[in-house]
């Protein structure tokens, strides 16, 4: 398992270095405006940059159809899938932690954390988990191009829905639906308290990743490379 992750690290070292350095710049970019942003925005931004690391590795592997080579090595297909999840968490999570820790060296960034640190970390974690859980099975099934098409498709679909809602005056309905979800989350938050809420979210993200991992293994076993 670790040899697969190590292989990805070695093969993608330049991609990792470039994307990783960009993530390192995140704290400084956010400090450019006069008004410091809320910490959650900062964490989400760093998180976004860091999730790009494993995604770009998968993209690279997919683009050069290196999977055929990997599959000829003494590893099972299950191993390959598992290594993508473990590697994804390891690389994105590890680098995110490192960048956030490095950011603390700058006093201005340290100040950001004075308010809402817990929620920000939870938000970052959720984004990381969601990205991994969605991107990996999607690329395994449809390839990297499939993922890009999927993202574009979702945007188009969103726009169509939005325009449709505007035209039919259903915008209020959407707004109400979104608002009711937010309210439900909010009231749940109040009921279980911050700790309980965090546990629920972490559990949810973990469950989603587990389901996604199971599904990916199933898909990959019969996929022609």
């Amino acid at each position: 398992m670790w040899n697969l992750i190590r292989k990805d690290l070695i093969l993608g070292r330049w991609t990792l270095i470039v994307n990783g350095s960009m993530a390192l710049l995140a704290p400084f970019i956010l400090l450019i405006p006069d008004e410091p942003p809320p910490v959650i925005l900062y964490v989400l931004y760093v998180g976004l940059m860091c999730t790009m690391l494993p995604v770009s590795l998968i993209a690279k592997e997919d683009k050069f159809s290196a999977t055929a080579f990997t599959c000829s090595l003494p590893v099972t297909r299950d191993d390959i899938v598992t290594s993508r999840y473990l590697g994804g968490w390891f690389i994105a999570g590890g680098w995110m932690a490192a960048v956030l820790a490095l950011g603390l060296l700058a006093p201005a960034v340290r100040d950001l954390w004075s308010n809402g640190a817990g929620g920000a970390l939870l938000g970052g974690l959720t984004m990381l988990g969601l990205t991994i859980a969605i991107v990996i099975p999607f690329t395994i099934r449809f390839g990297m191009n499939g993922l890009l098409f999927g993202l574009v498709g979702l945007q188009v679909l969103g726009m169509v829905l939005f325009i449709g809602a505007l035209a039919t005056g259903g915008l209020d309905g959407i707004e109400r639906a979104v608002k009711s979800v937010i309210d439900a989350v909010g009231s749940y938050h109040e009921r279980v308290g911050p700790a309980g809420f965090a546990v629920t979210v972490i559990f949810g993200v973990a469950l989603l990743n587990w389901v996604s991992w199971k599904a990916s293994r199933r898909i990959f076993r019969t996929r022609d490379l």
Binding site: F69, T76, R77
Partner: peptide
């Protein structure tokens, strides 16, 4: 061969016709 484990796969050697993609190494 699609499902076999590590032990069996290590007994196979292969030379693919397409260039293997790790060629910057």
């Amino acid at each position: 061969p699609g499902l076999s484990g590590r032990a069996i796969r290590s007994r196979i050697g292969f030379v693919l016709d397409r260039p293997i993609s790790y060629e910057h190494l």
